[in-house]
Design a protein around this nucleic acid. Sequence first.
DNA 1: CGACCTTTTGAACGTATTCAACCGATGTGG
DNA 2: CCACATCGGTTGAATACGTTCAAAAGGTCG
Lengths: 250, 250
Amino acid sequence: MKAAPVQHPPVIKLHVLKDACAQCSARELCLPLGLSDDELQRLDEIVATRQKLKRGEHLYRYGDAFSAIYAIKVGFFKTDVITEDGRDHVTGFHMNGEILGMDGISGDAYTCNAIALEDSEVCVISFSDLEHLATLIPTLQRHFHRVMSREIVRDHGIMMLLGTLRAEERLVAFLLNLSQRYAARGYSPTEFHLRATRDEIGSYLGLKLETVSRGLSQLQDSGLIVVQQKYIQITAIDGLKKMLQHTQTC
Amino acid sequence: MKAAPVQHPPVIKLHVLKDACAQCSARELCLPLGLSDDELQRLDEIVATRQKLKRGEHLYRYGDAFSAIYAIKVGFFKTDVITEDGRDHVTGFHMNGEILGMDGISGDAYTCNAIALEDSEVCVISFSDLEHLATLIPTLQRHFHRVMSREIVRDHGIMMLLGTLRAEERLVAFLLNLSQRYAARGYSPTEFHLRATRDEIGSYLGLKLETVSRGLSQLQDSGLIVVQQKYIQITAIDGLKKMLQHTQTC
DNA sequence: CGACCTTTTGAACGTATTCAACCGATGTGG
DNA sequence: CCACATCGGTTGAATACGTTCAAAAGGTCG
């Protein structure tokens, strides 16, 4: 709910340097991918502000005026949509290097809520600035299009999950997806903390929280994972993968 | 199961004029939206070819090299994704004015199949040409971003549908969505032909074809619609809408 | 006209949900 | 520091919903 920042060039130069894209650990997963040093610096210049959020805070809300997209620097977010009749549905979990807010472009207002599930920090990228810069740096334009396209492909995957998988398979797909994304960030692919509650996971997977809980217990009983509250350890990743390749019919 | 059609681009130049965006009935829903006459013409120039497809033919397949997006001029398409283990899932139904192929941008290959459900015609838009032109025409760039964003928002809506609605509610949402899109194209919002089979609708909605059939019969018995095979008449659109607003819990 | 595909409908079944009780972890204030 | 309240998670039993299996009717297209 802050007012749009006035256009002072940032005053604290030291922070800018240390926060710059070039120094960011998420660089290889984020917008700067593939840019030259020179181009990177020009992108840096339009990332006017960074914003910190405490656990539970909204980055933006459904209906807020759209003016920026956000790159997650550190932290973990969920996005959810709400229907007229009050039902809500988690549309995604998002970690560092990923871009939030692209849903807002089409109607000049965000169409979902983005909520930090742990203390987080994002880079605020003015969308009009980004579009302008994209006309000057083809690599940036192309990469931004890839990022949007990747979001579409991701959504198709979730639709498939929701449309064709059974409860336990959905959980497995969810865990493997997290595992892979943690791996891509240099974290352990077999050991991590869920930041989301069973209820949030259930909403994301189209299941009730009890079903999520039962599913996790069952995977543990099968010796594939170890669960302790939000702590997850994958003890047989191949076993999990096999559960998804397993053709049910015939 | 037909072999892919051989790649003759249509040779006939005279058609180009008559097929131009300015004359297209889908113009107001398509990429040209908001362009000046001059800009429109420049867009027209990069739409090198139009392509006709018979019912059942693939516009592109999963894995095909990506180089173009497609604007549907006339016709009706479905897109579906296929998993390693053979399950497939319909991710969308698409009508004139809508853009296909944006899933291919991120990985330089299409990630789903696009199949004509009736005889159709599309405009082939070279993506590199489009990106180039977008750097020159900010309105076009902005609008293309809106189109991609709209696709993301649409997908979120489907995820919500698949994650939270019951079988009959999914059907109602599906019918209302079609109704609204037909209305936007100047067709009757209360009377139309389904181009998809019960099986395809079921795949899209995460239901079995029998459930789709039963659901439609039930809506008919409730006096909300009339069904005759693929012909649908909505006799009480407010009644349908009420079914979605109805808060189930408390 | 006949073969095939799509759709409808019924009955039995299975999976996820609902309702409910309980447990454990976390956090707050006296 | 402990008692207590709260929130999140687990587990069981009954229920409901959609699926599966099956048969038959209705369309469509060669």
